[in-house]
Simulated assay, not measured.
Amino acid sequence: MSRPVMKRETIEESAIRLFATKGLARTTIKDIAGEAGVTEGALYRYYSGKEEMAWKLFNRELDQFTHLVSEVLFDDRMPFDLRLGLAIQTIYDYYTYNGDQFAFILLTQHGFPEDKLLSRETEPMAMAERFVGQAVGAGEIPPCDADLHAGLLMGAILQPLVLHRYGKLELTSETPALVTASCLRMLGLC
């Protein structure tokens, strides 16, 4: 791997870590450069500023995350409950192994203009709405308000991870199964 690619990766990893811990608004170019061990000028070789960097990194990380989840969530070869359980396990595994990236995706989305986020097909809430709507249409779950139930699912799945991130909840290997059971009950399947 060439030195410029390594430098860019170091800058991007540092930026994600800082955006995930300090937030988008409180992270400066100087912070990112210091964390990455480069000059501020090195950042400007790759990005015009912090906002462009954050938006490009957000899109990249969100696309990687949603690709993993959607592969399981929309695999019609499996029954609904198995798809939901595997998607939840995928989300919890991603959080476990990519905590900064997960926090960056979850927390940074609120720092971008709303019109940018609403147009995304891969936005997690839109995916959840589509998943619930398709399940209702296929008769896999009882009729319900897909938007409301998608929001309830997202809360049930993500809130334990937020609580863990802030040291208020211990996650165990059983947590994804417990969350899945709660989600299935919420959807009237248990």
Rank of each mutant, 00 (worst) to 15 (best):
L153E: 05
L82T: 14
G139F: 04
G133R: 11
C183Y: 02
M1Y: 00
E71P: 01
C144H: 06
E61C: 04
C144Q: 05
G188F: 02
R60Y: 00
T28D: 04
L152K: 11
Y92D: 13
L18T: 02
R60P: 05
T39G: 14
A128P: 03
G167M: 08
L178H: 02
V38C: 14
Y46P: 08
D145Y: 03
V132R: 03
A15K: 06
C190W: 02
E9K: 14
Q101R: 13
I29T: 11
D147K: 13
H164A: 06
L178I: 13
F104G: 06
E121S: 07
M1W: 00
L84N: 02
A15V: 07
T10H: 10
E9S: 11
F104L: 06
K30C: 00
L82V: 08
P143Q: 10
T21Q: 12
M154Q: 07
R26E: 13
A20D: 08
D147G: 13
T10I: 13
T180D: 05
A181M: 10
A138I: 02
Q134P: 04
E40R: 14
I157S: 10
L68M: 14
L117A: 04
H110Q: 14
E123R: 12
E129I: 03
L163I: 05
F19M: 09
F58R: 12
L153D: 08
M127W: 00
M154C: 10
E71L: 02
M186G: 14
T90L: 02
L86R: 09
D81A: 15
T122V: 09
V136G: 06
V72P: 03
L106D: 11
T39F: 06
Y92H: 10
R77M: 01
V132T: 06
F131I: 13
A25N: 05
Q134D: 11
L153H: 06
T27M: 01
E170A: 11
Q109M: 15
M6R: 15
R130C: 04
R60G: 00
G151A: 12
E12K: 09
Q101T: 12
Q64Y: 02
L68F: 04
P143M: 13
A33M: 00
G151Y: 03
D115N: 12
T96W: 00
T108H: 05
M6V: 15
P160A: 04
G85D: 08
I16A: 02
K116Y: 06
E52A: 14
A20M: 08
V162I: 13
L189Y: 08
F131E: 15
L73N: 05
L117W: 00
L106A: 12
S70C: 09
M53Q: 06
C190D: 15
K7T: 15
S182K: 08
L106R: 14
M53H: 01
M6E: 15
L68R: 01
A87H: 02
G111S: 12
N98G: 03
Y46D: 07
E174D: 03
F19G: 08
S70A: 14
D63Y: 02
V136Q: 05
Q159H: 05
E9I: 12
T27A: 04
I32S: 03
F65I: 04
L161K: 10
T175S: 11
S70E: 12
E61Q: 08
A87T: 08
L152T: 09
C144K: 11
W55M: 15
